[in-house]
């Protein structure tokens, strides 16, 4: 049985390495962010005059706001469409169409963000530009971001609805409830945990997305005054400046990365905690 024991040791070691990567990431973010955190403290990221890293002005607030606005907007678009799409495949679509719809949603999930960005830049931005400006603004970015995170909501809601006990639905139908009433009173409340997880997971995707927003939001660091004003998110800022940033500036970029990482990790742990309770 020696080989059995060595198999256990080898696989467990590999598993430990896989699990440790996340710690390694957090460790390196902390190490790189430490100089900025030590020298500047946290408050200067919110109280500095502006974002001019070369003259040591490190106000991250406009970028945090832009990140929050685009992510929240994306969820406002993705949640209703994604849930509707899950309801569609489970209750409205003929069998064949339902199969195709699921396949296409999975395909949508696999399209690279840079391709979404390209399409948004070449097709959507010129359309938005008819409302004024260049078309590269928070509105365009939000729409494309919403489309990108939609499959997450749709697929998780679909799974949650499909997992509902059939007898509930039959029971409701046998009581003479119409299709929309069954969906509204029985299906959606019953699947709300799964749908909620889908929306939260979509939110982490939206927070984490860089490329499409980088290509579409206009990238000007200013407090957004309306949806049609350009903006720059934290992610886009890192992508734009890491290439030339040095010393303190570089460290501040890692601070913003750390912020993203912490927010996203908290949401993910919350989801897995909820799921643990359910099981």
């Amino acid at each position: 049985m020696r080989s059995d024991r060595s198999l256990t040791i080898v696989t467990r070691t590999l598993a430990a390495i896989s699990a440790a990567i996340v710690l390694l990431i957090i460790g390196f973010l902390l190490r790189e962010a430490a100089p900025a955190l030590r020298q500047l403290g946290l408050s200067r990221f919110f109280t500095d005059e502006s974002w001019h890293p070369l003259s040591s002005q490190f106000n991250l607030t406009p970028m945090i706001v832009a990140t929050l606005v685009t992510s929240a907007g994306a969820i406002l678009i993705a949640a209703p469409l994604g849930i509707a799409s899950a309801v569609f495949v489970n209750f409205y679509a003929p069998h064949r169409l339902a199969v195709w719809h699921r396949r296409l949603i999975e395909l949508l999930a696999g399209i690279p963000s840079v391709v979404f960005g390209l399409w948004g830049l070449m097709v959507l931005a010129p359309i938005v530009a008819t409302f004024g400006g260049s078309g590269q603004n928070l509105f365009t970015a939000t729409i494309v971001l919403g489309l990108m995170v939609l499959p997450t909501v749709a697929l998780l809601s679909d799974a949650a609805i499909a997992a509902l006990p059939r007898p509930w639905i039959q029971g409701a139908a046998a009581l003479g409830m119409g299709r929309s009433a069954i969906i509204g009173w029985v299906v959606l409340p019953g699947a709300r945990r799964g749908i909620g997880s889908g929306i939260m997971l979509a939110l982490t995707r939206a927070f984490g997305e860089t490329m499409a927003v980088l290509m579409l939001a206009g990238n000007i660091v200013e407090m957004p005054s309306s949806l049609l004003s350009p903006g720059r998110t934290l992610n886009a800022n890192i992508a734009l400046e890491l290439g030339y940033a040095t010393a303190g500036h570089r460290s501040v970029l890692f601070v913003s990365g750390l912020m993203l990482m912490l927010v996203v990790s908290c949401i993910v742990l919350l989801i897995s905690h909820r799921r643990g309770h359910q099981a």
């Binding site: 440790a20 996340v22 990431i25 992610n235 990365g257």
Partner: peptide, 17 residues
């Protein structure tokens, strides 16, 4: 649990790391 968190890490953070 650690892999769940890893799955959620934004790609730009992978870039930083």
């Amino acid at each position: 649990r650690s892999l769940d968190v890893l799955a959620g890490v934004p790609s730009i953070v992978f870039g930083l790391f």
